[in-house]
């Protein structure tokens, strides 16, 4: 959510900056500002603040409950390190796959003009609605060893469940729709006339892509990458159902948290904080990258 939230924050800052001059001293203009506007701003502030607090308080509660020493100790535990590495590797692969396959899908959905597009649109959203365990069950029924597709793979000696591949597949299934839908709304803003204008100005296709298309869509794409990656990292239900839980092979960080919560709640909370710290770091990096790109392309 961090990359997604940042443009709104920027918008808010711009709004505030625009308000600054009247507050500076022009009394007549201040009076002219209607009460309706003031109330709108107050309401906006109150609701937004309440929203951010609503998100923040549970996270703070986790932090308050986890003593730093415990977090440090857990970082040294082999099972936590193993899960951290596995989570990092699998989410990176599933996010890259989400981009490789999701970007063409988003382009087709955004610019394609054909029958059944709405149907594909819905299909690309459905996995976000499915309870994750149902998604995992669906994957088992499809790619399990007695599954629809899986039984044919068995003939070649390929068995997907309970492997690291299954972890990546579960993450991809659940997280890729977040990439496709976010990327798609970014691509929707790309109007053909901008590209045409570039060509009119004798830009080569590569130049048009680099200087027109990329600057316009890259913020949305980075947000999409962040969302998909974050969803993949937090994935639990589909993974435990489709890939199971075997330390070092399929036990990702959220599963470590769940297993720990069965006996040692303090450990579960400490590992959760590690999970949060990792996600915060990656999402913040993506956010910074986005504003750097925006600056470079002076948007």
């Amino acid at each position: 959510m961090v990359p997604g939230a940042s443009p709104k924050a920027k918008g808010g800052a711009a709004l505030a900056a625009g308000d600054a001059p009247p507050e500076g001293g022009n009394a007549a203009r201040v009076r002219r500002r209607s009460w309706a506007t003031r109330i709108t701003f107050v309401l906006l502030g109150v609701l937004a603040t309440a929203f951010f607090l609503y998100l923040l308080v549970p996270l703070v509660a986790l932090l308050v409950h986890a003593p730093p020493q415990k977090i440090w100790d857990e970082m040294g535990e082999p099972d936590v390190q193993q899960a951290l590495v596995l989570s990092f590797v699998t989410t990176t692969i599933s996010t890259v796959l989400a981009v490789i396959f999701g970007l063409p899908a988003a382009i087709v959905l955004s610019h394609g003009n054909f029958r059944g597009r709405r149907l594909l649109e819905t299909l690309a959203t459905i996995p976000t609605v499915l309870p994750p365990t149902v998604a995992g069950l669906a994957l088992l029924l499809a790619y399990g060893r007695t599954g629809l597709v899986g039984k044919h793979l068995t003939a070649f000696g390929i068995s997907i469940p309970f492997t690291t591949t299954a972890v990546v597949m579960a993450q991809l299934f659940v997280a890729a729709p977040f990439f496709v839908n976010t990327a798609r709304s970014g691509l929707d803003q790309l109007q053909e006339r901008y590209e045409t204008a570039a060509y009119t100005l004798r830009a080569s296709p590569l130049q048009a892509f680099r200087h027109v298309v990329l600057p316009l869509v890259s913020p949305a794409l980075l947000t999409a990458v962040g969302l998909a990656w974050a969803r993949a990292l937090g994935e639990f239900g589909a993974t435990i159902t489709f890939a199971g839980n075997l330390p070092g092979v399929t036990q990702t960080l959220p599963i470590t948290v769940y297993i720990a919560s069965q006996r040692d709640l303090d450990k579960a909370i400490a590992v959760s904080v590690i999970l949060l710290a990792v996600s915060f770091g990656v999402l913040l990096t993506l956010g910074v990258l986005r504003s750097l790109l925006a600056k470079r392309w002076s948007l």
């Binding site: 088992l140 060893r145 199971g244």
Partner: peptide, 21 residues
Amino acid sequence: NIVSQETSVSGIVQKVELGEV
């Protein structure tokens, strides 16, 4: 031979019922 350390009994039953283990 344990391919999965399940978090609940229902997870074990489900995987046996489906013939995945």
